[in-house]
Amino acid sequence: MRDWTHAEHAEATGREITRMAEVLRDRDMSTPVPTCPGWDLAALTAHTGGVHRWAAAMVRDLAERRYDRDRMELGLPADPGGYAAWLGEGAGSLPEALLSREPQAPMWAWGGDRHVRFWSRRQLHETVVHRVDAELALGLPVSVDEDVAADGVEEFFDILPYARWSPGVAELRGAGETISLQADTGAGWVVTVDPDRFHHARSLRPGTVTVRAATAADLLQVVWGRRSPQDYGVEGDAGLLGWWLERAVI
């Protein structure tokens, strides 16, 4: 696993937007998206492209407060047939906005890192996970770069404590039990649930329960609820894992 810079996150975001737009091009936008219940590809695309434009606007303004996305003019085409191209336009405009500001510049963010750099990382993984949603909906093979996926798993753990709208997060307390996520590629994390909080660290050791998968991309899908850990391998206290996954939701 490697550490990323703001510029690397921004540039990777552009590449991932292009990939998602290509996946969606000429598709039936009424196709249901099982991993986002109640959404079809049109709703998935509108959401993802809307988030890109919302984040870009806040970064350009170094916003001190959250903008109301529902009140913004996002330029969504009237015809869903144009949604993929509209999404793809963000491959230029979002990285441009992210790179126009210093990574350490303070601004509003819902995570703990309230700086521009929060948004380059967040938009990369927002896009990756929703591209995966589209690929799963269309029955396409899922492929995520291993470095991107490993950073995405770690980002999930970094931002999870700040998902205050998700009531189960407050219940993630315990007596030192550990949830270990391990990939055959060498990426690994251990989450510890203590009486007052949970915390994570890069580690290759097993836990009270351990999920073993081939790649970090597999683990990314597990933590974001896109695949079941039983699709891979679970060792140890499966009840603890189920308890964690029910509550660790963003």
Rank of each mutant, 00 (worst) to 15 (best):
W39V: 11
T210V: 15
P161H: 02
A214Y: 00
W119V: 06
V142G: 02
L140A: 06
A84S: 02
D113G: 00
H199R: 15
T18S: 13
V144L: 09
G14Q: 07
G242K: 02
G111F: 00
A42P: 08
E154I: 08
G112H: 13
G233C: 13
W110N: 04
E246F: 00
D113F: 02
L172R: 04
R27G: 00
F198L: 12
W86S: 01
A187Y: 14
V148F: 07
H9V: 04
V132E: 05
V190N: 07
L181M: 13
V222G: 09
L140V: 01
V209E: 01
T48W: 07
A238C: 00
V116N: 05
E126T: 11
P195C: 10
R69K: 09
L204R: 15
R71L: 11
R19M: 12
G233T: 14
D147E: 13
M20K: 01
R131C: 08
G111N: 01
F157M: 07
V59C: 04
A248H: 08
E73R: 13
G207F: 03
A248C: 04
A43I: 10
D184A: 15
D68W: 04
E64I: 11
L62E: 15
H130R: 11
W39P: 08
V193A: 09
E64G: 15
D231H: 08
L74C: 07
M107I: 03
T127L: 04
